[in-house]
Simulated assay, not measured.
Amino acid sequence: MLSYVSDIHNCNVLELPKNHNPAGNLTVIQNGLHLPFDVKRVYYLYDVPGGSDRGGHAHKGLHQLIVAASGSFDVVLDDGKQKKIIQLNRPNFGLMVIPGIWRELVNFSSGAICLVLASEKYSEDDYIREYSEFEKWKSLK
């Protein structure tokens, strides 16, 4: 089990390895080498209409690495006390989001692709989908 303090200051941008080649760059992410968790699920968001937001939830136990595989978008992080906005716009950088952080994805550029590597398989029980429930959950921690 990973140890962490659930606040926005423990959500950091990681530089991922970039193998440059004139024919195109390559970034590889390996369990046990580049992430503090083993990847158990991968998903990506694409064709997000301009002006739309995604996310709007928190996780109780899930760790994620969020990458702008193409284009750009902003991630709004909220730990119940403080907020910060991280712009993702380079495919060799990823944002580590720890459990207990409310996140929203906003300002998608045209053609943006949001790639997410997750520490656990999907479980609806891990989600907190209402901000008022998030506040209650945080007050118990």
Results as ranks from 00 to 15, higher is better:
P49Y: 03
D74Q: 14
V67H: 15
V42N: 00
N89Y: 00
V28M: 14
L62S: 15
P36T: 11
K60T: 08
L65N: 10
D38K: 01
D74E: 12
V28W: 01
P36R: 08
G32T: 14
P49F: 04
N89H: 08
S72M: 04
H59I: 14
D47N: 15
H57I: 05
H57M: 12
V39H: 03
L45K: 07
V39I: 15
G80N: 04
S70F: 10
K81C: 15
I66H: 11
D74N: 13
F73V: 15
D47A: 10
K40T: 02
V39Q: 02
L33P: 00
S70A: 13
S72V: 12
K83N: 04
H34A: 01
V76H: 06
V42G: 00
G56I: 03
Y43R: 03
H57Y: 02
H59D: 03
R41F: 05
L77F: 07
H34T: 04
H63N: 04
V67E: 09
G61N: 14
K83S: 11
G55P: 04
S52A: 09
K40F: 07
V42K: 00
L77V: 05
G50I: 03
G55M: 10
I85K: 10
L35F: 05
S52T: 12
V42D: 01
I86P: 06
K40Y: 10
Y44W: 08
L65A: 13
I29F: 13
Q64E: 14
G71Y: 00
D78Q: 11
A58E: 01
Q30F: 13
D47P: 01
S72E: 15
G50A: 14
V75E: 01
A68S: 13
K84I: 03
V67R: 03
K83I: 06
I86T: 00
Y46Q: 12
V28T: 04
V42T: 03
N89I: 09
G55N: 05
G71H: 02
S72D: 03
Q64S: 13
K60R: 09
K84E: 06
G50S: 14
Q87P: 06
D38W: 07
D79A: 10
V76G: 07
Q87C: 08
A69N: 12
G51W: 08
H59Q: 12
H57D: 10
L62I: 07
G71D: 07
N89K: 07
V67P: 08
L26F: 12
F37P: 02
V28P: 11
H63M: 09
D79E: 11
I29E: 12
I85H: 06
Y43C: 09
N31T: 02
S72Y: 00
V75H: 06
R54I: 01
H34W: 04
P49H: 06
D78T: 07
A58N: 11
Y43K: 02
A69D: 11
V48G: 08
D74I: 01
F37T: 03
I86M: 12
H59N: 09
R41K: 11
K84S: 13
F37R: 02
I66G: 02
V42W: 12
I85P: 01
H59C: 05
P36W: 08
G80Q: 04
L65M: 15
P36I: 14
K81V: 09
D79W: 08
Y43E: 02
I86F: 05
